[in-house]
Amino acid sequence: MKVLVPVKRVIDYNVKVRVKADGSGVDLANVKMSMNPFDEIAVEEAIRLKEKGVADEVVAVSIGVKQSQETLRTALAMGADRAILVIAADDVHQDIEPLAVAKILKAVIDEEAPGLVIAGKQAIDNDMNATGQMLSALLGWSQATFASEVNVDGDSAVVTREVDGGLQTIKVKMPAIITADLRLNEPRYASLPNIMKAKKKPLDEKTAADYGVDVSPRLSVVKTTEPAERAAGIKVGSVDELVAKLKAEVL
């Protein structure tokens, strides 16, 4: 079985985000970019399925600017076999919406025919939490979102999901779309030899036009602003002082 993993290049999760003064968006020039953390988890899960003999090939796909190559090389260094880059933007500030990403992924999947797709639950830049669900709808496949445990068994998969009240286990028909939550696994670091090897692994380049997908946004950004700042409070010297404050104000 082939497993396809969509990976997104996003601002590194440790970087302090700066909103541009003109309100046009977040400043991404000269900012450290990395693979979306949830996608590292998705790649890890796919590689583990290969190591267990459940999968025989792992294909990483990224949609966006040319620099997303780096993100795909990271996936290859972790252990993906092959990568596909779909160039859909030339400015790093242009985010491709989940609906357009899902349409491109669907076109890639129509060609690649994977048995399973593992995406991240959420991209930490736009915080949409939508692409996997949309892709599943477009393909008419089953969906198992927010996965913390995945067991593939022949033509179905049993997936435990992180939901509001705790955990839910469902059984989905394959082919399926799974989205990875934080506790699915702990992604490995790529070793230096694997980083070297990754440079020779195949990385195909396509464009959104190759797949005939219109990536123009449905949601236009009117403005981007900083959230209201919280005024810093005070330090109290003792538990007694804290209790007095709380009794005066809330309790």
Partner: peptide, 23 residues
């Protein structure tokens, strides 16, 4: 925006060929 809402609404949006507006 509960776990159920986040699970279902993007699927609804894609079936209607519209973007979802999350959160």
């Amino acid at each position: 925006s509960t776990a159920t809402g986040k699970n279902v609404m993007p699927r609804v949006a894609a079936l209607l060929d519209v973007m979802v507006i999350s959160d």
